[in-house]
Design a protein around this nucleic acid. Structure first.
Lengths: 238, 238
DNA sequence: GAGTGGTCTAGACCACGAG
DNA sequence: TCGTGGTCTAGACCACTCA
């Protein structure tokens, strides 16, 4: 038995997908919609919450509810040894970088295998599509491996390749969760829209961690792909 | 500036983690809690919703709110060529299987590269910890590759290894989303707790799909790990 | 049947954004 | 300033679980 909020959400979904509400358009105010559907504003808001968690609608406080423009779906490609994070993405994306020198906070020491307060370089990559941020990647490298050059994305890749030895192993751990308040704000997503949290740790032949990266990818527009080829010699024995 | 529901959620979180409310215990009723915190029941319920989406509290309609027992965190290991799905999990888990013969529905034809209504064998694996279901895996194999043996997990692995050629490539696509109503019910999770959705497709040397598997893993207790070793010969060029 | 959570209401008051 | 969404209230009524 469908509840009212589901019925309203379904109706709005249809109106959006049919083009009755165009992408980027502002929906009627919540009061108007509540009157139209003859429900209370609370019920109407819970209907909109469903659409938000699907990434169909973006609320802007004091302004209105907007139909989200459909975004390019991007694929993070796993298993690449490249140190530059954006090379892992399939689609061409505008990317900005911001470099900060920090001392290793507690939650990073275990990941990087370094003592607390080790000098690190943090590089925050942000991908954009139009004005809307599309994904976040916090990258940490030991300070002596970090490029001295200004943090233009292309230069970082070259700088890293110059200074550090080749990674010999990359471990990527993927989990699903809801975004933190900060992530939701920066990515302009609902805090009820699931995100992929991906932690990538690259170690060189000596076992030293040469890079750790924390990716946050909105679930409505990103996924991660891992391809494994099996050597012919090996038996498929479970 | 923290809202009331966040303050209440924080307080309950502390009481749970400090052991004031024990795992498995039923919380006071929502009315009692609302009185205790001098808020309306709506506000109290929105505080509980926060704890639900963290997997700390399980609501049971008509019965009460229960502190969730902390569950073993499990890791799905990617990149394995094994066809038996449970071998991908790190922890020992109780698993049940249910086999059904079906005709390929539309959403599977593209995945498997077969015509509509191709005979398939669907195997639904469920892992359990105690009474609570822990994860779901829908596995599809072409009917002629499916084991004729009864669907005991161990026998399926043997049956598959006997009949089909070795997979030469495994593609695993990971995304994050909220569970469907059905998944939330079966897994006994809140519909606002993010899940990992993992689609694994194994193809043999001829390019034929020998297995497709759809995993649903609750985000509060599961993650996926992919390890890549880089051959020494290759350059780390981005 | 008694008690629990689930849905919904009609409204107050606050915080934010744009003109 | 005005209109928007954000938070919260006090309470009605329904659906479910368990004794």
């Amino acid at each position: 038995m469908p509840t009212r909020r589901h019925a309203i959400a379904d109706d709005l979904r249809h109106q959006i997908s049919s083009g009755h509400f165009a992408p980027g358009e502002r929906l009627p105010s919540e009061t108007q919609l509540a009157t139209h559907y003859t429900v209370s504003t609370s019920t109407l808001r819970s209907a909109l919450a469903l659409l938000q968690s699907e990434g169909l609608v973006e609320k802007i406080h004091g302004n209105g509810n907007f139909v989200r423009r459909p975004l390019c779906r991007i694929t993070y490609t796993g298993g690449t040894a490249a140190l530059a994070p954006w090379t892992a993405f399939s689609a061409p994306l505008r990317m900005t970088a911001r470099t900060t020198n920090i001392e290793a906070p507690n939650h990073l020491t275990a990941l990087l295998g370094v003592p607390p307060r080790t000098p690190l370089t943090e590089i925050l990559f942000t991908t954009h599509e139009g004005k809307a941020p599309h994904s976040l990647a916090y990258t940490y490298v030991p300070h002596d491996l970090a490029p001295a050059a200004p943090p233009l994305p292309e230069q970082i890749a070259v700088g890293l390749a110059d200074r550090c030895s080749a990674p010999s192993e990359v471990r990527e751990r993927v989990s699903a969760r809801l975004p933190t308040q900060e992530e939701a704000t920066v990515l302009r997503i609902s805090s009820s829209l699931a995100v992929i949290s991906l932690i990538r740790v690259a170690t060189d032949a000596t076992g030293r961690v040469v890079e750790a990266a924390l990716f946050v990818l909105p679930g409505d527009r990103a996924d991660a792909l891992f391809t494994t080829r099996v050597a012919e010699e090996r038996s498929p024995k479970a």
